[in-house]
Design a protein around this nucleic acid. Structure first.
Length: 419
RNA sequence: GCCCCCAUCGACUAGCGGCCCAGGUCGCCACCCUUUCAAGGUGGUAGCGCGGGUUCGAAUCCCGCUGGGGGCACCA
């Protein structure tokens, strides 16, 4: 029997990175086994449904490169089927009416258990199982009924979900048993925590896929990072192409203990992915990123700027602040300037021919010698005058890109400010 | 309160009885490189929660404790 899994978000808001983590494990499992990965929107709670959410979820998954097979399905569409099955259960005495709702009759003795792929045997005493409502008094099925019913109808073979569903599992198992269906294999993976050990939330940092996208993370980096929370192919490998992750992923290697979302490590990893890109691919990413952010910076210059920052930023979102001086005016702090030194630099740069990074370097190095000063000392005020900051891309390349006229004008302006 | 789950450096993890006085990665610290910031290089810091067993031998198996998390809805 071929593998069939499903990703089941509820449309209550933006796609949460914790949800992506469990979806990713589903996706990895299916893709590594020629299986099918379905997308089911669990919208039985209409009161909490957020308009737009369904579209946003799909957009976020698409951006991450996590695809699905077949059409997107909606749990509410299984309403009639659920009602029909519930009626059948009532007929057979497995369920009963209760104030307009239908409750499933759970056994009172014995235990209900299953062999969880990541946790081993889990058992619940049946006396703990309440008679759950499977159909509300308004006719809508509840999650605990619709979910196993759909798993059955979709022929899901492996239910890979968050461990907050562990206590739902015995109930769903009993329902499936009453329906005469062989239950799927269950794999409950731990939820991702914030640095304080609490469930990852807004106050820890970015949590929605959109936020990560806006901050300038690469989908591949995010996927690589997420894959390594709760799973490892071995003790050594850290950076892995997506294809390798797909190939090596197994549920058996998934850890049962919860992992913490380490933003610092993600930043590092994103930097690795950014630096690994070819210069062309990197420029493409930068152009696309800025365009999505609504930037009106001319593309030609953006492409020319890209190589200056590829090794310097860990997230694309840092680029605007870092390279803004190439696209607009600067406001240097007079205290960081030095009039005599800037005048000397102005003289030294005025005759540079051609206006290239190499020629600029030669001229500035010579200036340092003439002044008998260390480059770090000489370049600081020039950098501030030209870029408006003590931190910038390489000075020679920056000057070259800015052009002789603008560069000299900014240095001249620096002299005036410092005077 | 009841039920369930989890427990290796600050973080992600390797380890599935001897190869481990515990390995890799991030972070952090130091040094090197250096026009700033990064990147890069080298070295370092730091851990098996506690207590009992089992065994010739335990991070690895068992029990208890402690700590953390989750669930107990006509939410998903």
């Amino acid at each position: 029997m071929s593998v069939r899994v499903r990703m089941a978000p509820s449309p209550t808001g933006l796609l949460h990175i914790g949800g992506v983590h469990t979806f990713l494990f589903n996706w990895l499992y299916a893709r590594g086994r020629e299986g099918a990965c379905l997308l089911r929107i669990e919208n039985t709670d209409t009161s909490r449904e957020v308009r737009e959410a369904t579209q946003q979820i799909q957009r976020s998954l698409a951006w991450l490169g996590i695809d699905w097979d077949g059409p997107v399905t909606f749990q509410l569409d299984a309403m009639d089927r659920c009602r029909e099955l519930a009626a059948r259960l009532v007929e057979r005495g497995e369920a009963y009416e209760d104030e307009g709702a239908i409750r499933f009759h759970m056994p009172d003795e014995g235990v209900t258990g299953w062999d969880d792929v990541v946790r081993g045997r889990i058992e619940f005493p049946n006396e703990q199982l309440e008679d759950v409502v499977i159909v509300r008094s308004d006719g809508r099925p509840t999650y605990n009924f619709a979910s196993p019913v759909e798993d059955m109808d979709d022929a899901i073979t492996h239910v890979i979900r968050g461990d907050d569903h562990i206590s739902n599992t015995p109930k769903q198992l009993q329902i499936l048993r009453a329906l005469g269906h062989e239950p799927p294999v269950y794999a409950h993976i731990a939820n991702i925590l914030g640095t304080d050990g609490k469930k990852l939330s807004k106050r820890h940092g970015a949590v929605s896929v959109d936020e990560f996208r806006v901050a300038g993370y690469l989908p591949d980096a995010l996927v690589n990072f997420l894959a390594l929370i709760g799973w490892a192919p071995d003790g050594e490998t850290t950076i892995m192409p997506r294809a390798e992750i797909v190939e090596r992923f197994t549920l058996e290697a998934v850890s049962a203990s919860p992992g913490t979302f380490d933003y610092a490590k993600l930043d590092w990893m994103n930097g690795v992915y950014l630096r690994e890109l070819s210069p062309e691919a990197y420029a493409d990413e930068v152009v696309t990123y800025l365009r999505e952010r609504g930037s009106d910076w001319p593309e030609a210059r953006v492409r020319a700027m890209a190589p200056l920052v590829q090794e310097k930023v860990g997230k694309l979102g840092e680029i605007p602040a870092f390279t803004g001086f190439l696209f607009g005016d600067v406001a240097p702090d007079p205290a960081e300037l030095d009039a005599p030194l800037l005048e000397a630099a102005e003289r030294s740069l005025a005759g540079v021919e051609p206006w290239s990074a190499q020629a600029i370097e030669t001229a500035l190095r010579q200036l340092c010698e003439e002044l008998g000063q260390k480059p770090r000392k000489v370049f600081a005020p020039i950098r501030v005058a030209v870029t408006g900051s003590r931190v910038s891309p390489g000075l020679y390349e920056s000057l070259e890109l800015l052009g002789r006229e603008t560069s000299l004008a900014r240095i001249r302006h620096g002299v005036e400010l410092a005077a």
